[in-house]
Design a protein around this nucleic acid. Sequence first.
DNA 1: AACACGACCTGGTAGC
DNA 2: TGCTACCAGGTCGTGT
Length: 264
Amino acid sequence: MPELPEVEAVCRKLRERAPGSRITSAKVFRCAPATLEESARGRTIRAVDRLGKHILLRLSGGVTLHTHLRMSGNLFAIPDHRLHGAGARVVLGLSHGAGIVLEDPRALARMEPAETEVIDRKLAAGLGPEPLSPAFTLDWFREESRVSRQPAKLFLMDQTRVAGLGNIYAAESLYRARVNPRKLMNALSPAKVDSLHGEIVAVLRDALQSAIFAYGGPGKFAEAESFPIAVYGREGEPCDRCGRVIRRIAQGGRSTYFCPGCQR
DNA sequence: AACACGACCTGGTAGC
DNA sequence: TGCTACCAGGTCGTGT
């Protein structure tokens, strides 16, 4: 589920309920240290921030619940904190009985209490600019590309370079820009670098719209255009653009899907 | 610096 | 039906 667009959708949804609520109880089943129960209880949720794929629940008293959904996590509000599902890993009970639940079937997600100043400094130092922020300029991207000898796919997945892309949207960005995922960044033509920069932004913008729909956004009537997946998970199928068979290779221990015909 | 690999975990599914 | 093997949207630590 969660790359930047999905995480942003989760945050927007949470912002409808969470800010202003006091945490009256906290129960950790897994995915969080037991100390979270005590450090969260009694505090008020001031804001829900996001940095890359990291969710930051800002609590009163300079405490942040640093949350990462990893592969299969989800974070959402429920009307009654006692009625959480069986898959709940952390449940925050709020004033007026509502709740916030961290779910994750694989239990890889994490929610950890931290001093706000400390976690902010750590994340700022460890994450590159977000593609949907003004910091993601073409000049910056050109320079990063010029000095990187990483294969393009690994470059896009590297959160210290670009914060927020994951396996799906990295693959889709490369496909749209017609870039071979194995090609080293500093070996890409200037035109490909520029194209890739633009497609990263376009892919995330499109995906964000779809994610907001999927998470119960503006209208159930509007045509919920789901994000069109062109290559991810389509090994063996013909490419919509050139007809060549889409391949799956391994990079950095993950699957990369691409079209050997038009990604060069 | 850059990369491979295992660990962390559970669940779904294709194939036999 | 039931077993096995592999796959999964992420990150971190260790070793080369």
